[in-house]
C-alpha cells in the first residue's frame, strides 16, 4: 500500500478521490448559498442547522483533510513534473492545439482558488467561529445573513474578488470531473464524453451561483 501511494498513479488516485469529495462539497455549499436569494430567515435557519448538526461537525475536519490532501498532492506532483522537462524546453510549442487551457493550468487555477479560500475563510468562517459575527437579537444564533450581505453590499472590490474566485473555480472544474474518473479508470470513449458534459454543466452552475450572488447584493438588493 505504501508503494502504491508513492507511485505516480497512486498519487493521482488521491488527487481524484479528494477532488470528487470537494466537488460534492461544492454542491452542498452552492445549495446553501442560493438560500441567500430566498431571504434572511431561510438562510439563517440553514446556516444554524449546518453549525449545529452533528453530522456536519464530523464532516468538518474530514473536509479540511480533503482540501489538504488535494493541495499537498497537487504541489508534490507539480514540483516532480517540473523536473521532467530536461535541460532545454521547446522554442515553439502549439499547446493550444493539443489540449485545453484549463487542463494545462490546473495548478495556477488551484493556487488562485487557494488564495481566495484564505480570504473567504477570514471573511466568514473565522468571524463565526472566533467572534465578530452579528447575532440575532433574543437568540444565541448568528445572523449570518447580515454578515454575508453586509460584506457584499459594502465593497465592489470584495465582490470582484469573489467573482474572480468563482471564475477560477469554474475553469478548474472544467478539467475536474472527467479527469477524476479517468484516473479512477471509470472512463472510455463514451463515458469520457458523458463525464465532460456533466462536468461542464456543473462548472457553469457552480461558478454562476458563487460569482453572481455577491454582485446581486451590491447592484440589485
Amino acid at each position: 500500500m505504501a508503494g502504491f501511494l508513492s507511485s505516480s498513479i497512486g498519487k493521482k488516485f488521491l488527487m481524484s478521490l479528494s477532488g470528487l469529495f470537494l466537488i460534492l462539497f461544492l454542491a452542498v455549499h452552492a445549495t446553501l448559498n442560493s438560500l441567500l436569494l430566498v431571504g434572511p430567515e431561510a438562510y439563517n435557519e440553514a446556516a444554524n442547522f449546518m453549525a449545529t448538526n452533528p453530522f456536519i461537525k464530523v464532516m468538518e475536519p474530514i473536509l479540511a483533510l480533503g482540501f489538504i490532501i488535494h493541495i499537498v498532492y497537487a504541489l508534490i506532483l507539480e514540483v516532480s513534473n517540473m523536473g521532467k522537462v530536461g535541460p532545454v524546453g521547446y522554442k515553439m510549442a502549439k499547446r493550444s492545439h493539443q489540449s485545453t487551457w484549463s487542463s494545462r493550468n490546473m495548478i495556477y487555477l488551484g493556487l488562485i482558488i487557494l488564495t481566495f479560500l484564505v480570504i473567504h475563510l477570514a471573511n466568514f468562517f473565522w468571524k463565526v467561529k472566533f467572534g465578530g459575527a452579528p447575532e440575532i437579537e433574543g437568540t444565541n444564533m448568528h445572523d449570518t445573513y447580515k454578515l454575508v450581505t453586509d460584506l457584499f453590499k459594502s465593497s465592489l472590490i470584495i465582490d470582484i474578488i469573489y467573482l474572480i474566485g468563482a471564475i477560477a473555480l469554474g475553469l478548474h472544474l472544467h478539467h475536474a470531473l472527467w479527469s477524476a474518473f479517468q484516473t479512477l479508470g471509470w472512463s472510455n470513449d463514451r463515458w469520457r464524453k458523458i463525464w465532460s458534459v456533466i462536468g461542464d454543466i456543473y462548472a457553469i452552475v457552480i461558478a454562476m451561483i458563487f460569482g453572481l450572488i455577491p454582485l446581486y447584493f451590491y447592484f440589485i438588493n
Partner: peptide, 18 residues
C-alpha cells in the same frame, strides 16, 4: 511497467489529452 516508468524520469499524467 508503471514502477519502471516512474523510475526513469517520466512525469505523471495530468489528463490534458495532448
Amino acid at each position: 511497467m508503471i514502477a519502471k516508468m516512474d523510475e526513469l524520469g517520466f512525469g505523471t499524467c495530468s489528463n490534458t489529452g495532448a
